[in-house]
C-alpha cells in the first residue's frame, strides 16, 4: 500500500552510509554516462565506422564521403541559404498536409469509432483506398490538380490520413466498456461519456497515429518531390545525385532524418504534456 516513488526513495536510503557530495556526483555522472553509452553507443559506433571506412578507403569515398565532408556541405547549404528554401518549402508541404490530416481524420475517426453503423459503412471503402498505394495515385492527383503544390500536398495528405484514422478508430473502440458502464451508473449522458471517458481514453492511440502519420508524411513528401518538383529536400537529394554532389546529397538526407526525429519528439512532448497519466509507447 504505497506509492511507487515512496518505495523508490526508501530503497535509495537503505543500506548506504551518507556518501560525500562529490562522490555522489561522480557516481551519478558515472551512471548517466553508462546510460548514454547503452542508449547511443551503437549510433556512435556506426558514425565512427563510417568515418574510418571512408578515410581509409575501405569503402569508396566518392559514394560514402567522410562525415566532415557531409557536415561542411550541410553547413554551407544552410549558411549559404542554398538548402534553406528547400527546407522551408518541404516543411510547408508536409506541415499543411499533416495539419489537414489531423483536422480531417481525428474527428472522422472519433465518429466512426463511436457509432458502429458508421464504421461498418465506411470501413470497406477505407480499406480499398488504404491498400491502393498513394504513389500509384499520384499521377491521378497530378491530372486532377496539376503539377503544382496542390497535388503534392494532396498526395501527402491522402497517405497521412490512414494511420491516423485507423489509430483513432481503434483507440475509441478499445476504451474499456467497464469504464463506460461505470459512467453510466453515475447517470452520465452520452455526450458526457464521450467527452469524459471515450475521448481521454482514446488519446494515447491518437498520438500513436499522429506519430505514424508524421513518418508517412515525410516519406510521401520526399517521393512526391523526387517525381515532380524543382525545390524541396527530396528534390535536392535527387538533384545532388544527378550532379554527383554526393556530400550535398547526404546533407539533404541528414536534414530529412533530423526533420523526422524533430517531428516525432515534438509529438511525444505534446503527449507528455497532455496526458501525464500515461507513458508514451515507443514505436
Amino acid at each position: 500500500m504505497t506509492l511507487q516513488n515512496i518505495g523508490r526513495s526508501v530503497s535509495f536510503a537503505v543500506g548506504r552510509d551518507k556518501p560525500s557530495p562529490a562522490a555522489a556526483l561522480l557516481a551519478r555522472m558515472g551512471s548517466a554516462s553508462r546510460l548514454a553509452l547503452s542508449r547511443y553507443g551503437l549510433v556512435a559506433a556506426f558514425l565512427v565506422l563510417w568515418q574510418v571506412s571512408s578515410t581509409h578507403g575501405w569503402v569508396n569515398p566518392a559514394v560514402f564521403p567522410p562525415l566532415n565532408a557531409i557536415a561542411s556541405a550541410l553547413w554551407k547549404g544552410i549558411t549559404g541559404g542554398a538548402l534553406v528554401d528547400d527546407i522551408a518549402i518541404s516543411l510547408q508541404r508536409s506541415g499543411l498536409a499533416f495539419a489537414a490530416a489531423v483536422v480531417f481524420a481525428i474527428p472522422l475517426g472519433l465518429f466512426m469509432g463511436s457509432i458502429p453503423a458508421v464504421e461498418r459503412a465506411i470501413d470497406p471503402i477505407l480499406q480499398l483506398f488504404r491498400q491502393t498505394s498513394a504513389l500509384a495515385l499520384y499521377p491521378v492527383f497530378i491530372l486532377l490538380l496539376g503539377l503544382g503544390e496542390a497535388s503534392k500536398v494532396f498526395v501527402i495528405f491522402w497517405a497521412t490520413i490512414f494511420p491516423l484514422l485507423l489509430s483513432t478508430v481503434g483507440g475509441v473502440k478499445e476504451v474499456d466498456p467497464k469504464l463506460i458502464e461505470m459512467a453510466r451508473v453515475y447517470g452520465a449522458s452520452r455526450l458526457a461519456i464521450f467527452r469524459r471517458v471515450v475521448l481521454p481514453g482514446a488519446i494515447p492511440s491518437i498520438f500513436v497515429g499522429m506519430r505514424l502519420s508524421a513518418t508517412t508524411a515525410l516519406l510521401l513528401l520526399i517521393a512526391s518531390e523526387m517525381i515532380g518538383a524543382n525545390k524541396g529536400i527530396g528534390f535536392q537529394v535527387m538533384n545532388a545525385q544527378y550532379n554527383f554532389q554526393i556530400p550535398l546529397m547526404f546533407a539533404a538526407i541528414v536534414i530529412l532524418a533530423a526533420l523526422g526525429l524533430i517531428a516525432n519528439s515534438a509529438i511525444v512532448l505534446l503527449q507528455r504534456r497532455l496526458c501525464r497519466w500515461s507513458e508514451p509507447v515507443s514505436i
Binding site: K178, L179, E181, R184, V185, Y186, V197, P200, W277
Partner: peptide, 19 residues
C-alpha cells in the same frame, strides 16, 4: 434504469486512469 439514489461498487475499482 440507473438512478441517482443508487451507486455501484464493482469488483474492479474502475477508476479513470487520466484523473
Amino acid at each position: 434504469g440507473v438512478g441517482s439514489e443508487r451507486a455501484v461498487i464493482f469488483q474492479e475499482p474502475r477508476l479513470l486512469p487520466w484523473l
